[in-house]
Amino acid sequence: MLVCLCNCTDDVSLLMVLLDTNPFFWSTSKSTSLSFSNFLSHVLAFLNSVLLLNQFNQVVVIATGFNTCDYVYDSSSSPTNQRAETLLRKFEEFVVKDEQLSKEDTVDGIGNSLLSGSLSMALCCILKSNSNDIQRVFRSGSLHPQPRILCLHGSPDGPGQYVAVMNAIFSAQRSMVPIDSCVLGVQHSAFLQQASYITGGVYLKPQQLDGLFQYLSTVFGTDLHSRRFLQLPKPVGVDFRASCFCHKNTIDMGYICSVCLSIFCKHHKKCSTCGSVFGQAQTNAPSTSNQKRKTPDT
């Protein structure tokens, strides 16, 4: 039974799109079969279709660069007849700025883009629009844009961003903002798998990147209300591995400080985060030792 439970006439979306612009990812033909300009044309068509679905829909684009992140487009403050021009102009400025900030010319491998930064910015932006809209909803009873975040991401995860990305995910979960992710690289992203799983978003790694627009419009184009009636892609498992604090390695088994819960990949004598001195590593839970060790003040 398809009954709309709210008293709105239509569902309004606020879509935050995070575009990965890491130049090292896009210039490596091994990492993706799609060229950056092709990618952009798919995305532009998708953004246009979202804006055409409902006149109140709002789209904000944030570029996730290698050295910096920035807002490149906001549909509420740009003239409707020159969407593509505005976006591309700002985009070019951003890419130039990102390049200037780069210090080294060579990076080993593809490098990571600053997912934690763009996620944090998107959440701040959603918070602001949320607090304004709440007022409006109860006054007029109609407009209530449902915010969601879409990450179009290709670069591999940066284990150094682990804590920041997790913080952002939990904040999104608390504010009930789903994070959708569309992974363009060869490998699955553990960060985005967890983000989508925890916030109730959709995680997708398209098989055929030349059909990107179709994936985007069928899976990520629909508003949250309509999603309930769709058969969206089911998660193919979630990679729950963590990063150790000592070497920033991704690990599936490790040691945890019982005082502060820091994660280490091997046994240490002393916790580097809280300074507690440890006894024997405890492989099996119940231990009979009753001796007490006071934790030194640091």
Binding site: C257, V259, T283
Partner: peptide
């Protein structure tokens, strides 16, 4: 508190 390193799997 008895500080301890506990082996855990994710």
């Amino acid at each position: 508190a008895i500080a301890n390193l506990i082996k855990m799997g994710f």
